[in-house]
């Protein structure tokens, strides 16, 4: 199984390389520094979101409210700072957005942990709640003047490369994504809490009996996802130099698609940071390269839909075949006696 999982990551990586070659050959612009920086820039926010979605999916849940949380955190933080502390440093914006995101995530956690409700339906509900509340109580107009520290942050560059026309910039926020990815990897693979998330997704009853505090894990998961969404939203707003309350919501599918493509299973217990990042890369490249190969951008949603269907369909067919060969779903693995101790 371990080998199979790894091979799934290899498969995604191979697909990415293949896609790059196809796009690169049909349009050499693809391999320019400018384009690669663009792709990386597009991956910054999605990568952060994907880390949150990964944790939820590993725990056996699904979260469709994280985009609403992100835009809620972004917009209300910007409004708050503009009104009371326009001179605030940019890190304060992130602290506030993170805190708001965390708070909203805890609302998700409350309904999921307290009432033991299905995560899809809860987060559908909170998505509507959060977004609706944002629009009717906080504001529904685009804010174009961000606090100066955020505007400055949006202009920051990590690497600058002189191009034929203008310069190509790589934004330092990519570090942010990288750091978060490493932290999530450490969390998931080297802490008991992370193992608890895998345990919860693998066998909930057993996790409970083993002494994991399921509710606490769920609060942690959805709180963390909220926090990451808050950060993601803030970066999104900074990079675009505006806070639009209608932004981000609607893109949740892209992120879920990326994580599922990266090998996470909606039934829970499976999924890795590397896989999810590869999934993000694949979705970003597919989305951003359509124009390069001459496909109008209106096809984007169609492509995302197809990626999801192919990415989930192929493993589903394989599993189904295997099951029919071994006889039904219920008889379980039949490899008896292999490692059983010698009798008598």
């Amino acid at each position: 199984m371990n080998r199979l999982l790894r091979s799934n990551e290899v498969l995604v990586a191979v697909t990415i390389v293949g896609l790059c070659l196809i796009v690169g050959i049909s349009n050499p612009v693809f391999f320019t520094v400018g384009n690669i920086f663009d792709l990386m820039r597009s991956s910054i926010v999605m990568g952060i979101f994907a880390m949150g979605v990964l944790i939820v999916i590993v725990s056996g849940g699904i979260d469709v409210s994280f985009t609403a949380i992100a835009v809620f955190a972004l917009y209300s933080t910007v409004r708050l700072l503009n009104a009371y502390a326009p001179e605030a440093p940019f890190w304060l914006a992130f602290v506030i957005a993170g805190a708001i995101g965390f708070g909203l995530g805890m609302i998700n956690a409350f309904f999921i942990a307290r009432f033991n409700l299905p995560t899809l339906i809860v987060t559908l509900g909170t998505m509507s709640m959060f977004h609706g509340f944002l629009l009717f109580a906080i504001g529904n107009t685009i804010v174009r003047d961000l606090p100066p520290s955020l505007t400055a942050f949006s202009r920051a560059t990590l690497v600058q490369v002189q191009m034929e026309r203008g310069v190509a910039n790589l934004h330092p926020a990519i570090f942010f994504t990288a750091v978060i990815a490493v932290l999530v990897w450490l969390l998931m693979d080297f802490t008991m809490l992370g193992r608890g998330v895998y345990a919860l997704g693998g066998a909930r009853d057993a996790a409970e009996r083993a002494g994991f505090n399921i509710r606490r894990i769920q609060y942690f998961i959805y709180g963390l996802v909220g926090l990451l969404s808050g950060f993601g939203g803030m970066i999104y707003g900074s990079l675009n130099r505006q806070a639009n309350p209608q932004d981000i919501v609607g893109s949740e599918l892209n992120v879920i698609a990326a994580v599922v493509l990266g090998g996470a299973s909606l039934t829970g217990g499976r999924g890795t940071v590397i896989g999810s990042l590869l999934g993000v890369a694949l979705v970003v490249i597919a989305n951003n390269s359509l124009i390069l190969i001459g496909v109008p951008s209106v096809w984007q949603r169609v492509v995302i839909g197809l990626i999801i269907l192919v990415g989930t369909g192929v493993p589903a067919i394989q599993e189904r075949r295997a099951r029919r060969r071994t006889g039904g779903s219920a008889s379980g693995p039949t490899q008896p006696l292999q490692a059983a101790p010698a009798a008598d």
Binding site: L253, P296, V302, G305, T312, G313, A316
Partner: peptide, 22 residues
């Protein structure tokens, strides 16, 4: 094919809406 309904219909939803845009 045997895809989970949530994922299958999220995918086709995106596909159908995408086709509408196209």
């Amino acid at each position: 094919v045997g895809i989970t309904p949530i994922l299958a219909t999220l995918g086709t939803g995106s596909l159908f809406t995408g086709l509408s845009y196209v």
